[in-house]
Design a protein around this nucleic acid. Structure first.
Lengths: 202, 202
DNA sequence: GTCTATAAAGTGATAGAC
DNA sequence: GTCTATCACTTTATAGAC
């Protein structure tokens, strides 16, 4: 009966995925400490005890979501970059901004849950998440170094500050309602224009 | 005995202020939901019940902190702007960035507590805080409009996007360790250079 | 002004029925 | 796989002693 077993596993995975999805959404809105297992269970049309069939603790569930949040952004950005490996360095930066912002505002809440909850999860979880982040940080450091080496970013611009600035303006969009009519791609283009041409230059 | 009454009131105010200070610090590190009254009491060398002499509820205490957080930033920025009312529009913007960032990173944690906890406090509190924010938002909207009207910001730059970008890069610095050696003022200057001259231009 | 004691409700987690 | 029932603990908040 491998077919039946496979069907069972698939059903289990579907439930598991639903729990992850809905918990991510709760974490974005309520934060880590304010979201209880009973809240989560209710959002999943379940009872709190049933969650332990799928996850061994609240923190294991939360950590899986926040980890997947970074990984989704990194792999989306990396995939887009791989498809344009020979493009101009600044074009690669612009695309990375677009994909980062689009992933942050897509229908799933994994990336936003990470951003909203990172600083308030227990210390040991945050330590592990920091390690997961490093790989994505390296992608950005490499992008900006390449652009500066090519002479496309002024030599006197500090790349760490520039990285802070770009990631900061992108991530902070979670705190606003984006202007209606301007999707993530349009917003990313406007941010790119500001950060690289500057607001002063026509 | 008005002297004695005044001394009593002063002592009461000192305790109250200490509670506010230390709770702000806890809120930054632990978030709204994870910070309990026992945590707060312990940080104040008190017992939980004693806090109710000074504040009528946990939420009243938290709301006072987060409200003061915005107000401190706004009045610091407004005071600096008042002292240079005839300066060039972009100089006023640069100073506003510096004061905003300096207040965010000063020894007290009111402003950072606001930023870190805003999205996770109860709905009705957040609604009131949003109203408090509006006044500060208007300061920035005015600053940028004046600069664009003077021709110092390119006509095709969307001012709402620019405001998102500036506030975003400034507030996001709470999530990084600032480069050692670069204080808030230095960082604000670098951000100003990026946002207004652009990273491309030497 | 701070304490102790306690109420009333909520928390993460486990055991065992189905 | 989900339920019910429950444990042990924590939570906000109150009452009354000092």
């Amino acid at each position: 009966m491998p077919a039946i077993r496979r069907a069972d596993e698939k059903l289990r995975d579907v439930s598991r995925r639903m729990i992850l999805d809905r918990t991510a959404s709760l974490l974005v809105r309520q934060g880590y400490g304010t979201t209880s297992l009973r809240d989560i269970a209710q959002a999943c049309d379940m009872k709190a005890g049933s969650l332990y069939y799928h996850f061994e603790s609240k923190d294991a569930l939360v950590e899986e979501i926040l980890t997947e949040g970074v990984n989704r952004v990194e792999s989306a950005v990396q995939k887009a970059l791989d498809a344009m490996f020979d493009a101009a360095p600044l074009d690669r930066v612009r695309v990375a901004m677009e994909v980062h912002l689009r992933t942050l505002h897509d229908r799933s809440d994994y990336a936003s849950a990470h951003i909203r909850c990172f600083s308030h999860v227990p210390d040991d979880m945050r330590r592990r998440l920091r390690r997961t982040r490093r790989s994505y940080d390296a992608v950005w450091a490499g992008l900006l170094e390449a652009a500066q080496a090519a002479g496309d970013i002024a030599a006197d611009v500090d790349l760490l500050t520039l990285r802070f600035a770009i990631i900061g303006m992108l991530n902070w969009t979670l705190e606003w309602r984006l202007p209606s009519g301007a999707g993530p791609e349009e917003m990313a283009d406007r941010f790119y224009r500001i950060a690289f041409q500057g607001a002063c230059n026509a």
